[in-house]
Design a protein around this nucleic acid. Structure first.
Lengths: 184, 184
DNA sequence: AAATTTGTTAAGAAAAAACTTAATGTTTTT
DNA sequence: AAAAACATTAAGTTTTTTCTTAACAAATTT
């Protein structure tokens, strides 16, 4: 009798976890994290730390898949290597604090976005200036170049704002302005 | 002579645009927008408005591809249908203001993230409570359920914070706090 | 209302991504 | 230093995604 109840309870617990793991994976999918990487993260979220073999066990997938999956999550800055005594296997922990998750994940992307686009703009504006300043080129073309130059110029404040936003997140200022509501 | 110069200038302009379109597509790729949708957005970014045929022309792809691509961008809230007089074809414009882009794109995702996960947590917590309050279940299991319950509970402030962040972006408060630097 | 133009859906082909097994490399232990 | 344990890379397969062509549906013009 009690055995049966215990089995039911275990199943309920697994079910409850699975639902949340799934929804985490689904939402990470929104940001370009593949479903399987998201599921891996969700799984790790409920574990203290995990070895590749434990992941393989839980997810029923191959070890190389776990290796590449966990590497991707490390690239996203949301999983880290750790050391667990008693085993010589590598162990990994997921970032459990979603605020840290937010910081690590989005700031990295925004910084990259700003860098890539500002560099491209820099180069392209140089090229456009050469057109604008060159001799023997129709005025229409020069004006077209000028317009694109201005459009690119106008986008710069956005990338600089992204950089400011990242700074505000990293030094905690944003959380002073927009505090976390501690509910009871 | 002038003809040659003009051709060179045209090529330079196209080259300058292409570089920026590419970098836009690359950075959108970071957020889970496919490369081709990103390229389409980047292309539209430099145009006033476009019909499906104009897109097909520019990108050298089929019309159904343009139709689905533009629909995806509409789903992301970064492209809108418009009306251009003189043609009966549908026309579409890209959001040119990247701040608006940021608002439309990220707030939509964050709201969805909060909703999906809060709902999953709600359901799963109910399930865990049933375990915790049930008779004839080992204390170990009950405690395990309790721990997962608490972990889920602890994540709620994050989702509520996301909702606050979205509100602050939508009503402009965030930009009062973190102003856009107008460079000259 | 018929014909034409435009947009979308469906079906199939091509390309890309994600997994698995097998091989190789690397680290740790003995 | 050799062996064992573990992780990663490589090669090949399967699955998924994305694209194209073809068929269909909707809307506009004549």
């Amino acid at each position: 009798m009690t055995d049966k109840k215990n089995e039911e309870a275990k199943a309920s617990i697994e079910d409850a976890k699975a639902r949340v793991i799934d929804s985490i994976a689904e939402t990470m999918d929104l940001y370009g994290v593949t479903r399987s990487a998201g599921t891996l993260y969700g799984t790790m979220y409920f574990e203290k730390d995990m070895t590749l073999d434990e992941m393989r066990e839980k997810l029923g997938m191959s070890k190389p898949s776990m290796s590449t999956g966990v590497k991707k999550l490390e690239d996203y800055n949301i999983v880290k290597k750790t050391f667990r005594k008693g085993t010589r296997k590598h162990t990994f922990v997921a970032e459990k604090d979603f605020f840290r998750f937010f910081e690590n994940y989005f700031t990295k992307k925004w910084i990259r976005e700003a860098k890539i686009n500002l560099e491209a703009i820099e180069q392209s504006q140089k090229e456009l200036i050469r057109v604008i300043e060159s001799e023997n080129v129709e005025d229409d073309l020069k004006q077209e170049a000028e317009e694109y130059f201005q459009q690119m110029e106008a986008s710069k404040p956005y990338y600089h704002w992204l950089q400011k936003l990242v700074a505000a997140i990293e030094n905690g200022d944003l959380f002073d302005y927009l505090p976390v509501d501690q509910e009871e």
